[in-house]
Computed example of a mutant assay.
Amino acid sequence: MFPIRDHNPSGRTPFVVYALMAANILIFLSYVGIMDDARLINRFYFDYAIIPARIADGVALETLVTSMFLHGGWMHLAGNMLFLWIFGDNLEDEMGHLPFLLFYLVAGIGAGLIHVATAPGSIVPTVGASGAIAGVMGGYLLLFPRARVDILLILIVYFRVFTIPAFVMLGIWLGFQFLGSLSSSPDEGGVAYWAHTGGFVVGLILCVPLWLKRGGTAFWNRTHGHPPHPESKYKLSASRIPRVPRR
């Protein structure tokens, strides 16, 4: 189950979102050729990825930023860029271009520090924009909790697009990240669940001043949790998989 689009159009062109997507893609293309060479890619990650033990020792602090523009594979990159494209444009619309860029970077750094705090002795490199994008999702939940999001559900041979409120989709996502945080060890590598969970919370907190500026609960009352402008309308086609009747 993953989102494919929302019904929340932007009032302005999201130049920062486009620039961040371009930077992530171009940087990935610049080193994808060495990913099959263990020595080269490990050296590359040592220089630019977050290694919690180094951060805890007060060195390589710049990797809290550089790691946000690195990815471990094509699917990692594609998934992060999809989430950034769906949810980032609306926050940029509300914040403005430069404030959104600063928000994105601070959320990513905050997510990285939370990851370090959960495994300060780990030497496993961590890469990805997921922490910053989780912050975007946290801000989106606060400002547009009832914005409609189209979800593609795949169950073996069955697939269908459903439209659900953002708070349901984002709440389920956050729940899975939190459960993953409790059941996995950052020292073992894999998904940096605490970075996702922490980034989400950091992004939500960072958006509280903007939410209050818009009126707080009065903003929700005016919009009923929906976008503050007309929603996009999409025509969803019915599934082509035939139904088998019971006998």
Results as ranks from 00 to 15, higher is better:
Y104A: 04
G189M: 04
A132Y: 10
P165E: 00
W194S: 13
V127K: 06
F178P: 03
G180F: 01
L84N: 10
A111I: 10
V127N: 13
D89H: 06
G135L: 02
V116F: 11
T163K: 09
R148L: 07
F167T: 01
G112L: 14
E92N: 04
Y140H: 08
V127E: 00
G110C: 06
A117K: 12
L179S: 08
G198W: 08
L91R: 11
P120R: 06
G128K: 10
T163P: 01
V161S: 02
V161L: 06
A192V: 04
V191I: 08
M169H: 07
I172W: 10
W173P: 01
A147R: 09
A134T: 00
E94H: 15
L174P: 08
F162T: 03
V168T: 13
T197N: 00
L179K: 08
P145T: 01
V161Y: 02
I86T: 10
P125H: 05
W173Q: 01
V127R: 11
F200V: 04
R160N: 05
A166S: 14
R160F: 14
A111C: 14
F83D: 00
W194G: 07
A107F: 06
T163V: 14
F87G: 02
A132E: 03
L174C: 05
E94G: 00
V106G: 09
F100K: 07
Y104K: 01
W85C: 12
A192H: 07
